Amino acid sequence: MKKGYPRVRFQKRLDELKNEVDKMGQAALKAYRDAFSTFIDYDVEVVNNVMETNKKVHEMGYQVEHDAMGIIAAEQPVAGDLRFIETSIKVSSHLKRISGLASNIAEVASHVKDEEIPEKPMFDLQRMADIVDGMVSKSLAAFLGKNMAVARELHRDDDKVDDLFDQALKDITKSMFQDKESISYSIYLLFLARFLERIADRAENIGDRTIFMITCEKLPLIGEEKD
């Protein structure tokens, strides 16, 4: 056996794990995009696809965890390699949650599909959704590319989402007071705003995990990650 073969084999397993997380991330991102698209323009087939994708993402997550633990048991990695494996497990957990929240958004869409949503709350929600979309994409790019600069951008993006979340709450509540008949569906808009805000938190957590993986510096959110 060639002297360098064990390391080559080990690196191959790490690369395969990375690819698994990448595929999982792309599936979770698609679920999110499809979910919000059906909120804008309802399509029952898209809703069903989001639900199916959510199941697949959870299955992929369990596979990532299984393979990661297998690598740890067989290879006994240390230092940076071990942090990468641990981070892969944590990232997969956040991606499962993002996919689950996407299914929640698709469910909201089914409750408001026949309603005419006021312009201002709709504007707030669309702006939130656009930033959240970028955050999920950035978080994946940061982790896969070990990009500190992109990971740090997520804190600023999350602040923007939090501000928009507060504004959306005000505008939706105002609409409820102005039109009592809107209360029944406005409650679902509040849920939607909350789901978007939580997806942003998950993306930020992925960024923080990435920074920890690269620097080994304990960050405020590590160990106390937003739920």
Score class of each variant (00 low, 15 high):
Lys96Ile: 07
Val108Pro: 03
Lys218Ala: 10
Asp208Pro: 01
Ala73Phe: 05
Lys138Tyr: 14
Ala149Trp: 07
Met176Ala: 05
Asp162Ile: 01
Ile183His: 05
Asp67Glu: 08
Asn49Ala: 06
Asp171Cys: 02
Glu119Ala: 14
Met148Glu: 14
Thr53Glu: 11
Pro220Trp: 01
Ile105Glu: 02
Lys23Glu: 13
Ile183Leu: 13
Ala68Asn: 06
Ile105Met: 10
Leu29Asp: 03
Ile206Met: 14
Leu144Ile: 11
Lys55Gln: 10
Gln126Tyr: 04
Arg33Thr: 07
Glu86Gln: 14
Glu225Tyr: 05
Arg33Pro: 02
Lys180Leu: 15
Phe36Met: 12
Asp43Arg: 09
Arg127Gln: 14
Ala151Val: 01
Phe177Gly: 00
Ala129Phe: 02
Ser37Tyr: 07
Ile71Ser: 08
Lys120Val: 15
Val161Glu: 05
His66Trp: 12
Phe39Ser: 08
Lys30Leu: 14
Asn104Arg: 10
Asn147Asp: 13
Leu140Val: 00
Asp162Thr: 01
Asp81His: 10
His66Glu: 08
Pro220His: 01
Phe123Met: 12
Leu164Cys: 01
Glu115Met: 12
Ala142His: 08
Thr173Leu: 15
Asp171Phe: 07
Ala73Arg: 08
Asp166Asn: 15
Met51Ile: 14
Gln63Tyr: 07
Asp67Gln: 11
Val136Arg: 09
Val46Met: 02
Asp34Phe: 09
Glu204Ser: 13
Leu82Ser: 07
Ile105Lys: 02
Asp124Ala: 06
Asp130Pro: 00
Phe195Glu: 10
Ile89His: 06
Ile105Phe: 00
Asn19Glu: 08
Ala151Gln: 04
Met135His: 08
Ser175Arg: 11
Ala102Cys: 03
Ala106Gly: 00
Gln167Arg: 15
Ser186Arg: 05
Val91Ile: 13
Met122Leu: 15
Val136Glu: 11
Gly223Pro: 05
Asp227Ile: 11
Asp15Leu: 15
Ser37His: 09
Asp227Trp: 12
Ser88Thr: 03
Leu221Tyr: 02
Lys55Ile: 12
Leu192Phe: 09
Ile98Cys: 06
Val64Asn: 04
Ser186Gln: 09
Asn49Tyr: 04
Thr38Ile: 02
Leu17Lys: 07
Lys56Met: 07
Asp15Thr: 13
Lys56Cys: 06
Leu29Val: 01
Arg9Pro: 00
Phe195Thr: 04
Ala203Ser: 04
Phe10Gly: 03
Glu225Val: 02
Ala193Cys: 01
Arg152Asp: 12
Val112Arg: 08
Met69Ser: 04
Ala142Arg: 02
Asp162Lys: 09
Thr215Met: 10
His155Cys: 06
Lys113Arg: 15
Val21Trp: 12
Val64Phe: 10
Phe84Asp: 03
Asp163Cys: 04
Lys174Glu: 14
Glu115Arg: 15
